[in-house]
Every structure is written in C-alpha cells, then in structure tokens.
Design a binder for these strands. Structure first.
Lengths: 254, 254
DNA sequence: CGAATCCTTGAGTAATTTCAAGACTGGTGG
DNA sequence: CCACCAGTCTTGAAATTACTCAAGGATTCG
C-alpha cells in the first residue's frame, strides 16, 4: 500500500525536526545552517497524481525536496517521444539540472499524491554567500547526482534487459531501506511503461523480464507490489556477465 | 595531425590570459576572482599518451582543467570490464564527480600528449568561502555536467547505433568549433574501441556504422580523421526516429 | 458497470552481438 | 629500408536479444 497521511513527516517548519533531514542534508551540516535553510522553505499544497511540479522550459526559480510520495522527471525528445529521466523518493532533491541554464530542462510530475518542499534558489544563493557550508553541501549533492547519473549511463550502455531491471530493483530496494522501509517488499510508484522507458526498453520486454526474474525465483511481482526473494542472487545478476567478451578499451602497454 | 606544441595555450600563470578561460569560466566571473583562482593553479608536466592523471580509488585532492590534448575517463565494472565514461577536451573540467565521496570514482588517462591545470580542491573551497561567486560558478559547471550526463543516458536509452554515432560526432563537432577548430573536419582522439565502449556498442558495430554513414554520404572517415559531409542531415539522423512507436509513458489525462 | 489504460502474451522481424578470420597500421629492431 | 609484431580495424556469417505488431485480459477510475 502507498504512503498514508499518517506516515508523512510532520509539516515541520524546521528541517531540524524533519526525519528526512539526514537525506536532504547528507552528513553533518551545522544545525544553525539548517535553521537558516528552513527559513527559506515554502510548503506547497500536496500534489495529486499526475500533477506537474514544474515544466521543461519554465524559468528556474527554486529547487525542491520530496517530502512524501514520488516524483517522476522526464523530457520530450526532438521527435516527440517522452524520455523518463528519473524517479525521486522522499529526501531527494529536484531541479538541480536547471541551475546552469536558468530554465527547467525537464518536467516533474507526481506519480502519486506527493508533498514537496520548495526552496527559492535566489534566496539560497544569498544564504550560501554568507554560510559557505550551504554551498559546499549543494556541491556535494550535485556531485553525487553526477555520479548517480553516470551509473545510469553505465547500466544502459552495458547491461541486458534482465540486468537493467535487476539494477533498478536493487536501487529502489536500497533507497526504500534508507527511508526506513523494507528492502525486500515495496510498491513501485511508477508504471511498467515508465519503468521501461527509463531503462531504455519496451513495456513488452519489461513484462517478459519480470516473468523471467520470477521464474528464477529472484523476484515476485504482483502488479506494482514487489518482493525481492533473493537479494544476493539479484545483485549477482545485476553485476554479472555484462556485454562481456568485449576486450577492454584501454589495452595499451604503459 | 594531432595538437602540436605551438598550438598549446601559453603557459599562462594567470587564467585571465589563457584563451581557454571562456570555457573554464563560462559567463562572466570577475577578473579578480579569476586571478584568485589562478593563484591556486599548479601546472603539471604534460602527460604522455596512456599516462594516468588520477586513478579510481585514489583520494580526491584536486580538480583539473584540460589545457591541451584529450583525456579519457573510465571505470572498471564489477565484472572487470572497462566502461568509458567520457572524453574531455581542452577547457573542460575533470574530477567533479569525486567531490561527493572524497575519492576518485573514475580513472583519467591521456589519449594523446596532454597538459592539464590542477586546482587543489581544499584551497578552492577556502577561496569559495570568501568569494561566493566561485562556488556559484562551480555549481553552474556541475549542473551542466548533470545535464550533459543526462543527455548521454538519453542517447543510450533511446537511440540506434547509427544515431548514437551521429550524436557523438555532432557533439565533438560542436566542441571542436567552440575551441576554434573546424566543425566538419577533425581528428578523433580516441580509438574505435573506446568510442564503441562509450556508446554502448561493440567495435564491430562501430565499424559497420561508420561504413553506413559513409554510404549515406554523411561522413567520411579515414582512420581517426573525420569529415562531416552533411551536418544538417547528420543532425536530422541524430534527432530522428528513435525507438519510436513506443507509446508515451505519461499518457494520463491531467 | 463501462471506458480507458495498463499489462501480458505470442509470433515474427530487425538490430546488434558474437565468433572467427583477415587486413591494415605504426612503431621497433635488424 | 624492410620485415615483423602487436594492436587496431574491418568483414562476413550465425546466433541472440530485444523490438514490433497484434490481440486478449486485468485494473483502475469515474
């Protein structure tokens, strides 16, 4: 079942009392710096499923932290196709990709009823000028973002359909665990179509891959309800034999 | 022919007199801020082909700006395969992905004789605490990094082999043009293997795709020497019909 | 309950990989 | 200067993976 109202973090006006703060502010940021950021945060009314948070092309004014629910980001390609860029769980920061251009480069919509903290970026910048640790934290968050995005490229470049789904399920498993939920039983916030799109596959392939993982007793899926039955084997599959046989690209003597 | 000594930017001790500064410092950063950064920069002796600049797992101490030549970054996957993460041309910044973990997550090696500016990160942080515009610029650079990495994911997820190569050649074309070189004739700094690996293909496919682009009179390739014969058609191909037919993932009414 | 969407399944097809082998290249040493 | 070597690149044929097309079943939401 999905997140219920009673599960939501308190409408804390202060991030120090929000149980997600360890996710939004990785590692220790002085609580006074957190207080200062808290001041800037605007609570928005919850988004209902399918409602956009921001849209590609719109001017960039704020970054967002997911508070509850799940958000999908996507872009529309030159040919009109949609490309799903990512799925964002509570504690994750959105819209950092817009900073360079000053314009949102992707569209964010709620996959389920979701609430979000809005942090006006100009104000955050001003604050960062006074409290450098804020800027440093932002840099770390962005750097991690680059690192994660890199992981996706790797997955897409070098892994079979089966492996891609394994990687995805493990990523979700880990992220749910970080949020205090089960790492082996969870509900996917996205549709098979969205999952397929994100992983560079078709929905049909997605469906068949779920069946294969089921046959191997690695995963049981009932609609969006997922149970990972063998985390270890699933990890092995995810890491396992990639395109392999491909000679290493860097085989110069030196 | 590859970059000759006479083509190298002056060994400027000050970034203000480096002709790459508009690339390293996109948009206007006050020249005194640039001066301050210049102070931190250490010139390293040029790397020769195949020589590593840093190695995955090593502690992160500095970021780097390519001055001349070309650098490849890559990681080694769980199964031992190499995965090429990117190619970096003069004016581009390296190692920002290491900031989050404090450890290099990829290995950087020179693809040809290359020189590089080293900017110790701790010192840069200290400077950023005093001159917030430095931090802001870093944030913008990182944000663009996220954006570009996203583009790669899109290419890998939704495009055919032919399209991937088209996208890659256009990206290089644009980057060479930014550096004052021809946008239609250039020399690839990387091998076919590295190119294939980066684009999630095999060298064999790479070779066949080059032939197909040649047959369509879009590109002429003689080894690493490339001529783009029809930029417009190549762009059209790159954007063109992707996996297509894939219904849009977001087809809820709202 | 009905419409719309989402998901699954099967059969056939297209694209890319795999495997194997030969040609080309640049650099080295005789 | 040439022959050789290692590595790089190309080519062909066969195998495989994932996609396409088509249709039926399951859900969800109003």
């Amino acid at each position: 079942m999905s997140t219920r109202i009673s599960d939501l973090p308190r409408q804390a006006s202060n991030c120090n009392s929000c149980r997600l703060s360890s996710l939004c502010f990785p590692e220790n940021l002085s609580s006074c710096a957190v207080d200062a950021v808290s001041e800037l945060i605007r609570q928005r009314r919850p988004l209902s499923r399918g409602e956009p948070l921001y849209t590609a092309g719109a001017p960039f004014r704020a970054i967002y932290a997911v508070r509850s629910g799940a958000i999908k980001t996507s872009t529309v390609l030159a040919n009109g196709d949609e490309h799903v860029c990512g799925f964002h769980l509570p504690g994750e920061i959105l819209a950092l990709d817009a900073l360079a251009s000053g314009t949102h480069v992707s569209t964010a919509v709620a996959l389920e009823t979701s609430s979000v903290c809005e942090i006006p970026y100009q104000a955050l910048e001003r604050l960062g000028a006074e409290l450098p640790s804020i800027h440093q934290r932002l840099l770390v968050i962005m750097s991690r973002e680059v690192y994660l995005e890199r992981g996706l490229s790797q997955t897409l470049a070098r892994r079979s359909a089966e492996q891609r789904l394994a990687v995805m399920l493990l990523s979700l498993s880990e992220r749910f665990a970080e949020r205090g939920q089960s790492s082996t039983r969870f509900r996917l916030p996205m549709s098979r179509y969205e999952l397929a799109n994100y992983l560079g596959l078709t929905p049909e392939t997605m469906s068949r891959v779920f069946r294969r993982l089921h046959q191997q007793s690695l995963v049981a899926a009932d609609g969006k309800e997922i149970e990972i039955k063998d985390l270890e084997k699933l990890s092995f599959l995810a890491d396992g034999n990639s395109i392999s046989t491909q000679r290493t690209a860097n085989s110069r003597r030196h």
